[in-house]
Design a protein around this nucleic acid. Structure first.
Length: 426
RNA sequence: GGAGAGGUGGCAGAGUGGUUUAAUGCACCUGAUUCGAAAUCAGACGUACCUGCGAGGGUACCGGGGGUUCGAAUCCCUCCCUCUCCGCCA
């Protein structure tokens, strides 16, 4: 969520940013509402504080009168204080209402795109930041999509998943299961080498945590919920990992904080089914290795580039054709200031699949979560948060299987051999 | 799940209705001393919001929420959490 102070002081920049996201003039009116409400809030706060201050002062003098035995005077003052109390109570209620209204409006304003983010509303307006220059893998006309390969080699089973759970919960088996584990291990090892601390977080989180990264209140329908205990299954490791620093003040010398985590991710994907969602392209449960950085505002965009290079390295080592998109204002996630998407070429489906999304959120998340750092002068400021998938498994597996199919079987990239223990699926 | 104890600043720990602007110790920071350090001495040492050009002033916060009272860390209600023992269990 944006800081009210920033909206107040840099109104024009905020409005320009919302335009870049494709907001209409009517929608942008919310900014004036916010500024108006904030002014009311501040005035009410002042009045309440004044009234409380007077009450405190009187209460203290009552204490002194009692001590000196001036009972009558004390009684008179009590009546006065009672009136003040009613007044400040009323103002407190007003203040709470104003705060709630203000928060509701603030929750509905997305992050402001970085100046380098292209204007646009739809995915078609995303900019290709880095294209795939080499030829795509040469596949025979008889090349199979991954869901058929999975059947042929018994790698994973959707029907069985339906029996156990429901659609979108694949059961991996044999070499398919082993390949999953190999990729997880490989990605974690690479992140570790790059200086990320490995975290194994809980897969269920409480309400505060879900609110911290912005899953609540808006995206509640995207998460699975355990009603009995009021816990949510995480849609991404970003949720528990970023929340580790919620309400903390980090010394500047500790920045950046680099963390990585492997977790299964659970997504209801309500209403997201349609074309192109066969096989592993979209599932309710998938494995992902997430990288997270908590960084000094001066360095965050440099850090973003570093994270991009990390993901690129993974794609190269896995010998997968990929391209990088710089998302336009309208296609970016709500909380992001700048996002790069990685897409992998899926040889048999002949289409790009999104496998990673690397973003800088500036202070949008840290403001809500109150993650701050103390700079050299002792001043407290919000940190910038960044995260990215490095990488998401299901679609990587889809591309690996499709691109590497040969008449003899499916070739495993060399870098995975030591993890899989086999070089071919046949 | 049962019984008991408890939640106070970065940490430890006092405080059971009124100069508590939360004692004290440790840690951290600054200064003195020192060639330098240790030790010692002195000082500073929370967060958020409001207000002021600023120095500063105000308000709230002792697990969360509510209540009693002129006045609550302190009394009452409620929820959450932690610890110990017992039970169950990978």
């Amino acid at each position: 969520m944006l800081q009210v102070k920033v909206i107040r002081e840099e109104k024009q920049r905020i409005i320009n940013g919302l335009r870049k996201r494709g907001w209409s003039a009517a929608q942008i009116k919310i900014i004036d509402q916010i500024i108006g409400l904030d002014e009311q809030r501040r005035n009410t706060q002042k009045d309440m504080d004044d009234s409380l201050a007077e009450g405190n002062k009187l209460a203290k003098s009552i204490g002194q009168m009692m001590a000196q035995g001036q009972k009558a005077e004390a009684e008179a003052l009590k009546i006065e204080v009672a009136a003040l109390k009613t007044k400040s109570k009323m103002m407190e209620e007003q203040l709470n209402t104003l705060k709630a209204q203000l928060d509701e409006l603030l929750y509905s304003v997305p992050n402001i795109p970085h100046k380098s983010v292209p204007k646009g509303k739809t995915p078609e307006e995303n900019k290709v930041a880095k294209d795939w220059k080499k030829p795509f893998p040469a596949l025979a006309d008889t090349a199979l999509p991954h869901w058929d390969l999975a059947k042929q080699y018994n790698l994973f089973d959707f029907e069985l998943g339906v029996k156990l759970t429901g659609s979108g919960f694949p059961v991996y088996r044999g070499k398919g299961a082993r390949l999953q584990r190999a990729l997880i291990q490989f990605f974690l090892d690479e992140a570790g080498k790059a200086g990320y601390e490995e975290i194994a977080p809980p897969l269920l989180v409480n309400e505060d945590t879900a609110r911290g990264t912005g899953q609540l209140p808006d995206k509640e329908a995207q998460m699975y919920k355990c009603d009995l205990d009021n816990l949510y299954l995480i849609p991404t490791a970003e949720v528990p990992v970023t929340n580790i620093l919620r309400d903390e003040i980090v010394p500047a010398k500790d920045l950046p904080v680099k963390m990585t985590a492997y977790t299964p991710c659970f997504r209801r994907e309500a209403g997201a089914w349609g074309a192109h969602v066969r096989g592993l392209n979209r599932v309710h449960q998938f494995d992902k290795i997430e990288i997270v950085q908590i960084e000094h505002p001066d360095r965050s965009y440099k850090t973003l580039q570093g994270m991009i290079r990390h993901v690129e390295k993974l794609m190269n080592k896995l010998e997968l054709p990929y391209r990088i998109l710089l998302l336009c204002g309208g296609d970016m996630g709500f909380a992001s200031a700048k996002t790069y998407d990685f897409e992998v070429w899926s040889g048999a489906q002949k289409r790009w699949l999104e496998v990673s999304s690397v973003s800088c959120f500036e202070t949008f998340q840290s403001n809500r979560m109150k993650v701050r750092f103390r700079d050299e002068n002792g001043k407290i400021e919000l940190v910038h948060t960044l995260n990215g998938s490095a990488l998401a498994l299901a679609r990587i597996v889809a591309a690996l299987l499709e691109n590497n199919q040969t008449p003899e079987g499916i070739r495993i990239p060399k870098v995975l051999w030591k993890y899989t223990g086999f070089k071919m699926i046949d």
